[in-house]
């Protein structure tokens, strides 16, 4: 949209990252466990349970160790914000990235892999979030489904979708398809 378009029917305003930060700093989201800016809309959860946290903790540890072992300059991060455009600032459960800045969201182009842990959120993570990450060109995306005990692995972003995908049951090793030499065991899941 440009301001030259004639808009006389009210449209939803898409919050920008600057708006989101301003509200966050004002304390507007105090009391919410986690907020994210997704395509101009702030979404929040205010609770997280141990089944989700356990899988998240395990995958984070394994990925961080695997990154060190692979020696690729990649690091795993736990719930950091990634900048995917003027109105999108998600906070994935785990991010694997290189050259993460100290005091800013990680730019999308430095992100190698995003992992979301889904308990109640599988539909959102496999639908809207997959579209979001593919559109931003995130090379690889995993959704660990706590209930189905499986990891949905997606890679080769093409437009709004990932061209390649497979499922790996908890317990089997998961080898990243777009990161040379990165593989994690999931036996303790």
């Amino acid at each position: 949209m440009t301001v030259q378009d004639v808009i006389d029917l009210p449209r939803a305003y898409r919050l920008r990252v600057a708006d989101y930060r301003l509200l966050d700093e004002s304390g507007a989201f105090d009391g919410l466990a986690k907020t994210e800016l997704i395509e101009g809309v702030i979404v929040a959860v205010n609770a997280q349970y141990t089944a989700h946290a356990r899988v998240q903790k395990h995958l984070y540890r394994s990925l961080d160790l695997a990154c060190s072992a692979a020696g690729t300059g990649l690091e795993a991060w736990f719930e950091v914000s990634i900048a995917l455009g003027p109105d999108t600032l998600p906070q994935p459960d785990i991010v694997v990235a290189r050259n993460a800045p100290e005091n800013a969201a990680i730019p999308g182009e430095r992100v190698a892999l995003v992992v979301e842990i889904a308990d109640t959120t599988a539909k959102f993570d496999l639908g809207a979030k997959a579209r979001l990450y593919a559109s931003a060109g995130i090379p690889e995306y995993w959704v660990a489904d706590v209930n189905a005990r499986t990891i949905h692995q997606m890679w080769n972003p093409d437009g709004e979708a990932y061209a390649k995908r497979r499922e790996i049951a908890f317990g089997e090793p998961v080898g990243a398809m777009s990161i040379e030499g990165l593989s994690v065991a999931t036996t303790s899941l």
């Binding site: 009391g31 809309v41 702030i42 929040a44 989700h52 109640t120 959120t121």
Partner: peptide, 12 residues
């Protein structure tokens, strides 16, 4: 708010 583990839009 009721406890939610799925993302819901935040009402401003």
């Amino acid at each position: 708010l009721p406890l939610n583990t799925s993302p819901l839009p935040v009402k401003l």
